[in-house]
Amino acid sequence: MTALRTDFDTPQPGRFSRSAAGVGLAFKRALVSQCHPTMLFAVLMPFLIALVGAFLLLWLFWTPLTDWLRVEASHWDFVNRTDEWLVAMGLFSLKIYLVPVVAAAILLPVSGILGLAIAAVFVMPLVLRHVGHREYAGLAVQGKHSTAVSVWNAVWVSAAFAAGWLLTLPLWLVPPMALILPIFWWAFAFSRMMRVDAIVEHASPAERRLLIQRHNGGFWVIGLICSLLNLLPPAWIILPVFSALVNAHYGLEALKRLREERVIDV
């Protein structure tokens, strides 16, 4: 009788350095993969969907949302006092600028998470076929119900992101939360959305649980780096596919090493 030896529960010297090296290798391989014509073409789908989604959201909800925000802002004593002080100083009216900024901060991330979800569900299989045939050809496919798992993961992550983003918006008024919270929520989205889809086709359910448990920190580092890149608007075009490539390389390499671990007799 045999069993797969796993040393997750025992201290491992150098695990952090190996994890960092794995993240660096994943980004290096993802840059190479992203330059392939197939992956360059794959960029178009999530970008166009996010663009169309942003246009529809702004067209359908901008006026009612800004009207509602103006009514709500008129009831906020802090906003009213600050607005009166700024006007008295001859500067500007806070409400004129605050309402459009808040409306954009609500609607635009919704279109962004939609593009990321589309990339996770529909583009990730294309990414896995591309990198799997080229660099992980010997990795057996042992996943079960991959489509259902991918869709469910995209739905709950999108819902959690949207709810968390909206509920923490008032904290943006507390410095420096306006910078920290967007970075955190996008790191959450990039890591939680992509890490499951990266390994769901190849890893068995047991392997998937172990990989996510063992490499949770590495996936979060990838999400944090992608979140920081997300602060640069030009990166919005390629980030859904590029983040899928990074997570695919990281997850499949981790799965490859997991299966190479020594099998011992019990």
Rank of each mutant, 00 (worst) to 15 (best):
W172T: 13
V155K: 06
I180V: 00
W172Q: 12
P175K: 02
V141Y: 06
G164Y: 01
G164V: 03
P170N: 00
T168G: 03
S158K: 07
I183D: 04
V155I: 08
L179V: 10
W156I: 03
P170L: 05
L166K: 13
T147Y: 10
F161T: 03
P176S: 09
A163E: 05
L169W: 04
V149S: 11
V174M: 08
P182R: 00
L179I: 08
L171C: 01
L167R: 14
W165N: 08
L179N: 07
W165L: 12
M177H: 01
A148I: 07
A160K: 14
V157Y: 07
W165S: 15
W156P: 04
A178G: 15
S146F: 09
T147M: 14
V157D: 06
W186F: 15
T168M: 11
P175L: 03
V151C: 08
A140M: 09
W156Y: 09
P176D: 12
V155T: 06
V151F: 12
H145M: 15
L166A: 13
V149Q: 12
I183L: 06
T168I: 14
G143L: 15
Q142D: 13
K144I: 13
A154P: 14
V141N: 13
A159E: 10
A160L: 14
P176M: 15
W165T: 13
A163L: 10
I183R: 11
L167E: 14
V157W: 12
A159H: 10
H145G: 10
W165H: 13
F184E: 08
L181F: 05
A154T: 04
L173T: 10
W156V: 02
A140W: 07
M177A: 03
A163C: 11
M177L: 02
L167S: 09
V149D: 09
N153Q: 11
L173D: 11
V155N: 07
T147G: 12
I180E: 00
T147C: 11
V149M: 15
A140Y: 03
P182L: 01
P175I: 08
W185I: 04
P182V: 02
T168Y: 14
W186A: 04
L181D: 00
